[in-house]
Design a protein around this nucleic acid. Structure first.
Lengths: 198, 198
DNA sequence: TTGGTAAGGTAAGTAACGCTTACTTACCAG
DNA sequence: CTGGTAAGTAAGCGTTACTTACCTTACCAA
């Protein structure tokens, strides 16, 4: 659950910003609550006023990033006319966002998934919403006769999301560069034309 | 690094077995060293005789499972003649193994990735070897004219592995059943024929 | 037999960390 | 003023991963 109520006290904002900053230089498990509080300029106890526990703070940082990301992708896809174009935009946007914002990518692809509690959070809710958006595009493409109707839209959604993640995971892990355009092109080619020769 | 030397003392074996057992009922972070030792019937200190730390114990449990899995997949692929058949066998074997051995799947897909230390372990080395095996099959398929030579084999490898993982992740997380055969068939169809209508 | 050595295993403790509790201060409506 | 509530603090408590020093047993050479 997200912070309920309509206030957003400065202490809470400072804590979220502090963790975001710290995640740039070290991974979550190596960051202590004392460190977060010190960086935010508040005391440790305040964390537990606004967040259930240390993990919950991480989830809310992710939630803020992910919500913005989801919105951006939807806006970029909007002008495209065909489902195929929309999917390609989603792939490109995702790869671009992951490589440009590696803290966010590490959080989403590596950090948060390690504990079951994540899958009950609002952040995971956004992830599901993102998948639902993609699924909607695919179902639309099937309805319009663009995409083969024998294919299960849910599985194709998973396939696309999995491919995107794995396509950039190595680069994110080892801080290597990624050619977003050529990766997008190859990924689209595989998905839409298949890999068989001829 | 794995336990070096040619001995494998009973205490070490008991610890590995104990963690494997405990992972069936709770996730790694919720398991304490005291619990592992008690389950194994040894004292806590012995963990640090054979393993660098608690995480290292997890990595070695994973190493044992993963090595066996990799070997099994290679053996199953061997009789197949075409690259396309081999890939389909790899997909089916992976899905089957993940769904039948969910502790292993959770470890591999969720638990271990959360800390950077994993990517320097032998277990990750096996994961890389598995990817290399698949890549070899694909390169062979390209050389034989089965697979479109314009496609980057490395990216196709990542695409396949990512699709497999995402195809069963939800089922593993929420303990749902997975139809291995139909999932394999659809995944293969997407990869080899593409998703475009006609 | 003896004495040295090394491996297998134990017991007790420690520092650090996440989290809680009880308290203070600031603000604001009636 | 006054009462109530939200924001923030200070200090400590329990757990947990990990360390250190020690004990026991088996083996083998002189």
């Amino acid at each position: 659950m997200r912070h309920s109520g309509n206030t957003n006290p400065p202490g809470r904002q400072k804590l979220i910003k502090a963790l975001s900053t710290l995640l740039k230089t070290k991974h979550f498990q190596a960051i202590t609550t004392a460190e977060i509080a010190a960086t935010a300029g508040v005391t440790e106890g305040l964390i537990y006023k606004y967040f259930k526990d240390k993990q919950d703070l991480l989830y809310q940082v992710l939630y803020e990033h992910f919500t913005a990301f989801h919105l951006e992708v939807k806006q970029r896809m909007a002008p495209a006319e065909t489902a195929v174009d929309k999917v390609e935009i989603l792939i490109r946007s995702s790869l671009k966002s992951y490589t440009e914002n590696r803290v966010f990518a590490r959080m989403l692809l590596l950090e948060v998934r390690s504990t079951p509690a994540y899958f009950a959070t609002d952040a995971y809710g956004v992830a599901r919403g993102f998948a639902r958006t993609l699924r909607g595009v695919i179902e639309d493409g099937i309805a319009r006769g663009e995409i083969d109707r024998r294919i299960d839209p849910l599985l194709l959604t998973k396939c696309i999301l999995g491919s995107i993640e794995h396509a950039c995971l190595g680069e994110i892990l080892f801080s290597r560069q990624l050619d977003v355009d050529s990766t997008t092109a190859t990924l689209s080619h595989i998905l839409f034309h298949g890999v068989r020769a001829q």
